[in-house]
Design a protein around this nucleic acid. Structure first.
Length: 464
RNA sequence: UCCAGCGUAGCUCAGUGGUAGAGCGGUCGGCUGUUAACCGAUUGGUCGUAGGUUCGAAUCCUACCGCUGGAGCCA
């Protein structure tokens, strides 16, 4: 039996029967000489596993094969047979090896392990490493699962704009989008920059959230979600922040805070379960080399219900904890990272959802509760990462929303279209944002957000 | 942006005022159905950059750059 076109190594390794002739292509991970032949470990990225190639010295180009070093690309045809050695089921006995591309001793990747920090400096080559090829296979798989989760539940995928004219969504600094000549800005008679002359005839920015637009679509299509790039110009230098990241934002009409929390928790569990089931090799690698407790923690997350507490209860727990905190804890103050950590890592030791925050510390669009003091905000906190989901029931009452805006020093006339949603057929609705990269960090155990993004953008860094 | 730590060979690191080191990698040779193979030899440096102190600086001081951890902001 022959197979005419090249076979992914993943497919070759999954075969249940030998095959006389097969072609595989990939990059040499390592090569070892034996007496009359050479072992080549070949990887094509389709799977974490390598295919062992047996290159006999009877090959016409055996001298060239013996010069193959880590990183070279080759195309191999031969017979897939049960391996004589331990450690792998199949191996490929080559009858032809075409050297496609060679490397020299300046190739930075070695057989031995490298630190993520070093690999980050060679972001164009790091997908050839086990760790990063695994991260990005999982990233692909989970992106697919995001769509499946929502599509299975009747959500409509909405492409909200990446360029936005809204500069006050209450989420960090924005990147300006302009075609004006920075060396020679047009000025009004008052000396201010004349944005009427800019491409969109107004100031525009890269989006920090698709929420407001998603709300408009939820109030027409009932259940929608966005999944796309998001930009923050915040000068944040941490392992959890990037300037460009992907965010998932479901928005549901006729849905209150409880339904919102239910969905967020179900979603987190769904993605964790997906990775555990569909990316077994990769998850095993993360559990071995990134975080020894990862798999136990993830299984716990899937099995157990998440804890839910109000902000007020969280504050009481923290005050009674007896733990020493650097920052004060009191009703009305923001929960600091150390407080969130204590709740999710020390006290509950599982993901928790904190809800009903004081309205003073939350954005204008969140629905004010009947107590008049709190809003229907919810933050889903996970061990090791902190906030992974932030959401709320939205304020659907026109007069209350306008009042919230004024309290936040916003001019309601700037948000006419958003207020129209409350003016015409308003309904209670809810949604949340989930940072895709933070989810990936949680699921892979990789502690730095720069290492779950193919080419990360962070302050002072956009090299690739 | 703030606080702390770290920048020495391709990689991971030792060297704390007196001749620049190790392991791994690479190269060469040997052995071998091997598994991050093994054995031997060998290669490899503007000690982040620029100033300063000193008879003498990888080592002490200053500034800058970069990286890491933490904080703030948030997803």
């Amino acid at each position: 039996m022959t197979q005419p076109s090249p076979t992914p190594i993943k497919g070759a390794l999954q075969r249940t029967a030998p095959i006389d002739s097969i072609e595989v292509q990939g990059w040499v991970r390592t090569r070892r000489d034996s007496k009359d032949f050479s072992f080549i470990e070949l990887n094509d990225g389709s799977t974490l596993r390598n295919l062992q190639i047996i290159a006999k010295n009877t090959l016409p180009n055996y001298p060239a094969v013996q010069r193959l070093t880590t990183g070279a690309s080759i195309s191999v045809t031969g017979a897939l047979v049960p391996s004589q050695g331990k450690g792998q089921k199949w191996e490929l006995v080559a009858n032809q090896i075409e050297v496609v591309g060679t490397t020299d001793d300046s190739y930075p990747l070695q057989k031995k392990g490298h630190t993520p920090e070093f690999l980050r400096e060679i972001a164009h080559l790091r997908p050839r490493s086990n760790l990063f090829s695994s991260v990005f296979r999982v990233r692909s798989r989970l992106a697919f699962a995001v769509h499946r989760f929502f599509q299975e539940r009747g959500f409509i995928y909405v492409h909200t704009p990446i360029i936005t004219g809204s500069d006050c969504e209450g989420a960090g600094e924005l990147f300006r989008v302009t075609t004006l000549d920075a060396e020679n800005m047009p000025r009004t008679t008052k000396g201010e920059i004349d944005y009427a002359k800019d491409f969109f005839a107004r100031p525009t920015y890269l989006t920090v959230s698709g929420q407001l637009e998603a709300e408009a679509f939820a109030l027409a299509l009932s259940k929608v979600y966005t999944f796309g790039p998001t930009f923050r110009a915040e000068n944040s230098n941490t392992s959890r922040h990037a300037s460009e990241f992907w965010m998932i934002e479901p928005e549901m009409a006729f849905c209150d805070l409880k339904g919102n929390m239910d969905l967020a928790e179900e979603f987190v569990k769904y993605l964790v379960a997906e990775a555990r089931q569909q990316c077994a090799d990769e998850m095993e690698l993360f559990g071995k080399f990134v975080d020894k407790e990862l798999l136990a923690r993830l299984d716990f997350v899937v099995d157990r219900p998440f804890q839910r507490i109000t902000y007020a209860e969280a504050v009481e727990l923290l005050k009674k904890s007896g733990a020493k905190f650097e920052f004060p804890i009191d009703y009305g103050l923001n929960l600091q990272s150390e407080h969130e950590r204590w709740l999710t890592e020390k006290h509950f030791q599982c993901p928790i959802t904190v809800f009903n925050y004081p309205k003073e510390i939350k954005p204008f669009y969140m629905r004010v509760n009947d107590d008049g003091k709190t809003v229907t905000a919810m933050d889903l906190l996970v061990p090791g990462i902190g906030e992974i989901v932030g959401g709320s029931q939205r304020e659907e009452r026109l007069d209350m929303l306008e009042e919230n805006m004024r309290r936040h020093n916003m001019d309601p006339t700037d948000y006419k279209w958003y207020l129209d949603l409350r003016r015409y057929g308003t309904v209670p609705h809810s949604g949340f944002g989930l940072g895709f990269e933070r989810m990936l960090m949680f699921i892979t155990g990789v502690p730095n957000i720069r290492d779950v993004i193919p080419f990360a953008r962070t302050p002072g860094s956009a090299e690739f």
